[in-house]
Deep mutational scan, measured.
Amino acid sequence: TEVDLHLGDITIKLKDVSEEIVKRAKELFKNGWSAEFVKKWIEEAVK
């Protein structure tokens, strides 16, 4: 499945990412993480 994760003005296309990771990524962004950091976190999380 593909998900578009909207973080501010940046959209990250996610492939084969669990709902849990998407939820967590949104929380991290809301908590002040930059979109770049969230993207890196996701990449690490799906390895």
Rank of each mutant, 00 (worst) to 15 (best):
T1N: 15
T1I: 12
T1W: 15
T1R: 12
T1H: 13
E2R: 09
E2Q: 09
E2G: 09
E2P: 08
E2N: 10
E2M: 15
E2I: 13
E2W: 15
V3W: 12
V3Q: 10
V3R: 07
V3P: 05
V3Y: 14
V3H: 10
V3T: 11
V3F: 14
D4T: 15
D4G: 05
D4E: 15
D4S: 12
D4C: 15
D4Q: 13
D4M: 14
D4L: 15
L5G: 02
L5Y: 02
L5C: 04
L5S: 02
L5V: 07
L5Q: 02
L5P: 02
L5N: 03
H6C: 08
H6G: 04
H6M: 12
H6T: 15
H6Q: 15
H6S: 10
H6N: 09
L7G: 02
L7M: 07
L7K: 01
G8P: 02
G8D: 06
G8Y: 03
G8H: 04
G8R: 03
G8M: 03
G8C: 03
D9H: 12
D9R: 05
D9I: 07
D9L: 10
D9S: 09
D9A: 10
D9M: 12
D9N: 11
I10E: 13
I10A: 07
I10S: 06
I10T: 12
T11W: 09
T11L: 12
T11D: 04
T11P: 04
T11C: 08
T11S: 10
T11G: 05
T11Y: 07
T11I: 15
I12D: 05
I12E: 04
I12F: 04
I12P: 01
I12T: 02
I12R: 00
I12N: 03
K13W: 10
K13C: 15
K13N: 11
K13F: 13
K13M: 13
L14S: 01
L14Q: 01
L14C: 09
L14K: 01
K15S: 11
K15Y: 14
K15Q: 11
K15N: 12
K15I: 14
K15T: 15
K15V: 14
K15A: 09
K15E: 09
K15G: 09
D16P: 02
D16C: 07
D16R: 04
D16I: 03
D16M: 04
V17F: 04
V17K: 02
V17D: 01
V17R: 01
S18L: 06
S18G: 09
S18W: 05
S18A: 12
S18T: 08
S18F: 05
E19H: 10
E19I: 08
E19D: 13
E19A: 10
E20K: 07
E20A: 11
E20V: 09
E20C: 12
E20D: 13
I21E: 01
I21S: 01
I21W: 04
I21P: 00
I21K: 01
V22W: 06
V22R: 05
V22M: 08
K23H: 11
K23T: 14
K23C: 11
K23I: 12
K23F: 11
R24G: 11
R24C: 14
R24I: 11
R24S: 10
R24E: 11
A25D: 00
A25H: 00
A25L: 04
A25K: 00
A25C: 03
A25T: 01
A25F: 03
A25I: 04
K26H: 11
K26L: 15
K26V: 15
K26Q: 11
K26S: 10
K26I: 15
K26F: 10
K26E: 13
K26N: 11
E27L: 08
E27R: 05
E27P: 00
E27Y: 09
E27N: 06
E27A: 06
L28N: 02
L28V: 01
L28Y: 08
L28T: 00
L28M: 14
L28I: 04
F29N: 01
F29S: 02
F29M: 05
F29V: 05
K30C: 04
K30A: 15
K30M: 15
K30P: 01
K30Y: 12
K30F: 11
K30Q: 15
K30N: 14
K30H: 13
K30L: 14
N31F: 09
N31P: 01
N31W: 10
N31K: 11
N31G: 11
N31R: 09
N31T: 10
N31L: 14
G32Y: 02
G32H: 03
G32D: 01
G32S: 02
G32T: 02
G32R: 01
G32N: 03
G32C: 04
W33V: 09
W33N: 09
W33D: 04
W33G: 06
W33M: 14
W33A: 15
W33Q: 11
S34M: 06
S34V: 05
S34Y: 03
S34H: 06
S34E: 06
S34W: 04
S34F: 05
A35S: 09
A35E: 05
A35N: 03
A35I: 13
A35C: 05
A35R: 03
E36G: 08
E36N: 07
E36S: 09
E36A: 11
E36D: 11
E36Q: 11
F37P: 01
F37A: 15
F37Y: 15
F37S: 15
F37E: 15
F37M: 15
F37D: 14
V38M: 02
V38R: 00
V38E: 00
V38W: 01
V38F: 01
V38Y: 00
V38T: 03
K39V: 14
K39F: 10
K39L: 13
K39P: 00
K39D: 03
K39T: 10
K40E: 13
K40D: 13
W41C: 01
W41E: 00
W41T: 00
W41A: 01
W41K: 00
W41P: 00
W41N: 00
W41V: 01
I42R: 00
I42G: 00
I42S: 00
I42Y: 02
I42T: 02
I42K: 00
E43W: 07
E43R: 05
E43S: 07
E43T: 08
E44S: 05
E44M: 05
E44C: 09
E44T: 06
E44N: 08
E44P: 00
E44R: 05
A45E: 14
A45I: 10
A45V: 12
A45F: 08
A45D: 02
A45Y: 09
A45K: 08
V46I: 14
V46W: 05
V46L: 14
V46T: 11
V46Y: 05
V46G: 07
K47R: 13
K47I: 13
K47E: 10
K47P: 04
K47G: 12
K47Q: 14
K47S: 14
